[in-house]
């Protein structure tokens, strides 16, 4: 029994780490531009798919090079998204921006469908598939890659926002755009950086987890929704809350799948999310704001 639970925890943390990266991407874009980016899941898909495409076949690049290429391509997609879809619609309502990013996600999915078709693709594991044993639970080296990679990225993002000028400038834009502009911050550029960073995190999530979960043109949909749930769970706009939300959601789903029913694991995740929202409408770590009259 305990071995089983340990196994669920390992799966949960691995999946949760992926959710955490997607949620972190959500939080960064939300903070920088007040937009909930429904195309976040597509970054994950594009990262994984381009990595596979670049490394595939005889003429393919070696894996590390392919990974770097995939990350760069995804970042470019993120920047283009900001520049040509989000920036022109500044000042639009919540619903309008939601539809724009949903449109973007459908568009990107359509492009992926056109390029790669409906097949499911696998990516080679980074360092073999010989499982490690902890008691009776098994752990693939790739699980460690996911957990370690996610941990490093989260720490990196934390450092970026708290200790670098660019990171602080992005935070300034999210606090007050006009004031940021007045003190000489290039707001437009900061937005591009935020979207690029968010796309980078999505691509990394996709690349790290693709060897375990496989990928296809529509793999981003559910991941995007889970990332959004995780970000909401942690309190929208709170990056470390989003990470905690992602890990919590991954663990809940994994335990629910193992102990209750695998068919209902997604439903249980969303039920918990609803309950959290009903009890604390601003998420676990969100600030409660009062309306000024």
């Amino acid at each position: 029994m305990w071995d089983q639970i340990l196994q669920f925890l390992i799966t949960g943390v691995t999946v949760g780490a992926t959710y955490a990266l997607v949620a972190l991407g959500f939080a960064i874009i939300y903070n920088a531009s007040d937009v909930v980016n429904f195309a976040q899941g597509e970054f994950v898909m594009i990262g994984a798919m381009t990595a596979i495409a670049l490394s595939a076949g005889d003429g393919g690049l070696p894996l590390p090079l392919a990974l770097i290429g995939a990350v760069l391509i995804t970042i470019a997609v993120g920047i283009l998204l900001q520049r040509f879809a989000i920036a022109p619609a500044r000042g639009a309502s919540v619903v309008t921006t939601i539809i724009i990013t949903i449109g973007a996600s459908i568009f990107l999915r359509g492009v992926a469908l056109l390029v790669w078709g409906k097949d499911i693709f696998a990516m080679p594991h980074f360092s073999g598939e010989i499982p490690l044993h902890i008691g009776n639970a098994t752990l693939l080296p790739q699980n460690l890659w996911v957990m370690g990679g996610a941990a490093l990225l989260v720490m990196g993002v934390h450092y970026f926002f708290n200790h670098t000028i660019i990171g602080k400038a992005i935070l300034a834009c999210s606090c007050n755009r006009t004031a940021a502009h007045l003190v000489g911050i290039n707001v437009g550029l900061m937005m591009l950086v935020a979207y690029g960073l968010s796309a980078f995190l999505g691509a990394m999530a996709g690349i790290l987890v693709a060897p375990i979960t496989f990928t296809s043109y529509d793999a981003g949909v559910m991941l995007g929704l889970k990332g959004f749930s995780a970000a909401i769970l942690g309190g929208m706009g709170n990056p470390m809350g989003a990470v905690a939300g992602g890990l919590a959601l991954g663990l809940i789903e994994s335990l629910a799948a193992g102990l209750i029913s695998s068919g209902y694991k997604d439903a249980i995740g969303f039920i918990i999310l609803l309950l959290v929202l009903f009890i604390r409408p601003s998420g676990m770590f969100g600030k409660v704001s009062a309306e000024r009259v």
Partner: peptide, 26 residues
């Protein structure tokens, strides 16, 4: 659900929709 606003309301209604869909599938 309607105590929530903006993105939270969007998420909650989305979650509700997915839960019902899973119930139909399962």
């Amino acid at each position: 659900i309607l105590r929530l606003k903006g993105h939270y309301l969007a998420m909650a209604t989305l979650g509700f929709g997915i839960i019902i869909n899973i119930v139909l599938v399962q």
